[in-house]
């Protein structure tokens, strides 16, 4: 797998620029933060494939059972799922804490770059998983995470236990279900034989219309 890279436009959007051109000093800072992160992280992922059954709003994914109408709809054309978890490890958190004491402008840019980097890493992992199942005529649906819409965030813990994520990739959840290290993702990825059903969730699909990071804002 190639090394994940920060996506500049995405990081700028997290910083609130939303399409406004960035000035040179912001860009310099962004490049310097990107390279500090890209060379320092040790990203890891783990996934396991489970059969899927949907009964109304009840979604059964191997040992994980969740009631979620949005997830049920999202997976309606799928027969199986990958439970997937990925993390950039503790390094981004250490850097962000360090620069919070030294230079907040660097801390916020690191935060935005790391957020972009974990997305980019998850996409790379997704490509690798897609490759695994392609010979079976299967395609992957976009990731759907605990905490999205009505998929309760409290599934985070069971999700990690099923994947043995603490031992395998050092990923844990706090009592309030925040992932630690923070630059991490857990997600259900549906497997389907209908490539056209792989609808990619966009900002427009999300009910949070006042979200400052919404892509169609402005």
């Amino acid at each position: 797998m190639t090394a994940p890279r920060v996506r500049e436009q995405e990081a700028l959007r997290y910083l609130g620029l939303r399409g406004h051109p960035a000035d040179n000093r912001t860009l310099d800072l962004l490049h310097s933060c990107s390279s500090e992160l890209e060379t320092g992280i040790s990203p890891r992922c783990v996934s396991q494939r489970f059969p899927l059954q949907i009964h109304g709003n009840l979604v059964q994914m191997g040992p994980l059972e969740a009631v979620s109408s949005k997830l049920a709809y999202h997976l309606r054309n799928c027969s199986e799922v990958f439970l997937f978890a990925a993390t950039l490890g503790p390094f981004p958190d250490v850097l962000i804490r360090r620069y919070s004491a030294l230079d907040m402008s660097r801390a916020v840019v690191l935060q935005a770059c790391a957020a972009s980097l974990i997305e980019s890493y998850c996409d790379l992992c997704g490509h690798a998983l897609a490759e695994q199942v392609r010979s079976e005529g299967l395609y992957l649906c976009p990731r759907f995470s605990p905490g999205y819409s009505d998929f309760d965030i409290r599934f985070q813990k069971l999700f990690l236990d099923i994947l043995n994520a603490q031992k395998r990739i050092g990923l844990t959840a706090t009592d309030s279900m925040m992932l630690a290290p923070s630059k991490s993702v857990t997600a259900v990825i549906g497997l389907t034989s209908h490539p056209q059903s792989c609808h990619k969730m966009t900002c427009e699909d999300c009910p949070s219309t006042d979200c400052p990071f919404r892509k169609d804002a402005d």
Partner: peptide, 14 residues
């Protein structure tokens, strides 16, 4: 006024 953004605001603050 959104003619300057968070990284610049914080560079000035620092």
């Amino acid at each position: 006024e959104r003619t300057l953004f968070l990284p610049q605001l914080l560079m000035s603050a620092e």
